[in-house]
Every structure is written in structure tokens, then in C-alpha cells.
Computed example of a mutant assay.
Amino acid sequence: MPCNVRQLVAASLPGGEDDARCLAVWLAATHDMGKATPAFTSRRLSRLLELNTRLSCQAQGQFQRAWA
């Protein structure tokens, strides 16, 4: 995190830099916990499967053109 952002956050919290560090860790942890939820995971999985299908189709088309 940029120094000026750290200073701004620390200045607005009663515990200064210690509270700012705790807040940053808590925000990072809760953000990552959200990624472990089934809703997020299934959405990402469906996007990956869709991308894989598109890439497979593209690769198959390129392969067929190369051998034509």
C-alpha cells in the first residue's frame, strides 16, 4: 500500500499505524474468505469451463486449417 494511503488511514484511526495494519489484515482476510464461498467458486469455475471450451474450439479450428 502506498505510504500516503497508509498515513491517511493511520491518521483516521485511534491506534494509528497499529490499527491501520490490523484493518488492512482484516480486510485482506475477509476478502479472501469471500473467494472460498461456493457462490464465488462456482461462478469462477463456470467461467473457466467456458474459456476452456472457447479455447478448445479455436485450437481445433487452427489445427484443421493447418492441415487443410
Rank of each mutant, 00 (worst) to 15 (best):
N52S: 13
A20C: 08
T41G: 00
A39R: 12
G16E: 02
S46W: 04
C22V: 07
T53C: 04
R54D: 09
R47C: 08
L48I: 09
E50H: 11
S12F: 04
Q7I: 10
E17R: 07
R65L: 08
V25H: 04
N52G: 15
S42F: 03
R65P: 00
Q64M: 11
K35I: 06
P38Y: 10
P14R: 05
W67F: 12
W26I: 08
Q64I: 14
Q7E: 14
F63K: 11
C22S: 12
R44T: 08
E50P: 00
C57R: 11
R47K: 13
H31G: 03
F63L: 12
A39Y: 01
Q62M: 14
R47D: 12
E17K: 07
A29W: 04
A66M: 09
G61E: 13
M1G: 09
E50W: 08
F63Y: 12
M1V: 11
A24R: 04
Q58V: 09
R44A: 12
C3K: 14
R21I: 05
A10R: 03
N4W: 12
M33S: 11
L23Q: 03
A29F: 05
S46R: 15
C3H: 06
R54I: 03
L27N: 03
R54A: 11
M1C: 08
A39Q: 15
R6H: 03
G15N: 02
Q64D: 14
Q58H: 07
P14T: 06
Q7A: 15
M33F: 08
A59T: 13
K35Q: 13
L13Y: 04
A68T: 11
H31N: 10
M33W: 09
S46N: 06
P14M: 02
A39I: 10
Q64E: 15
A10Y: 02
R43Y: 13
G61Y: 06
L49T: 04
D19E: 14
T53S: 07
S46I: 06
V9I: 15
A29Y: 07
E50F: 11
L48N: 03
F63N: 05
N52M: 10
A24W: 03
S12D: 06
N4M: 06
P38I: 07
D32N: 11
V5S: 05
R54F: 04
L13E: 04
L48G: 10
P14F: 02
E50V: 04
A29M: 07
A24G: 03
M33A: 15
A66K: 01
C3D: 12
L13K: 02
Q62S: 05
T37L: 12
T30L: 09
S12G: 13
A24I: 08
A68R: 07
S12R: 14
A24Y: 03
L13H: 04
L55S: 02
H31R: 15
A28T: 11
A68W: 02
A20Y: 02
A11N: 10
T30F: 00
C22T: 10
R43I: 08
Q58S: 10
M33L: 15
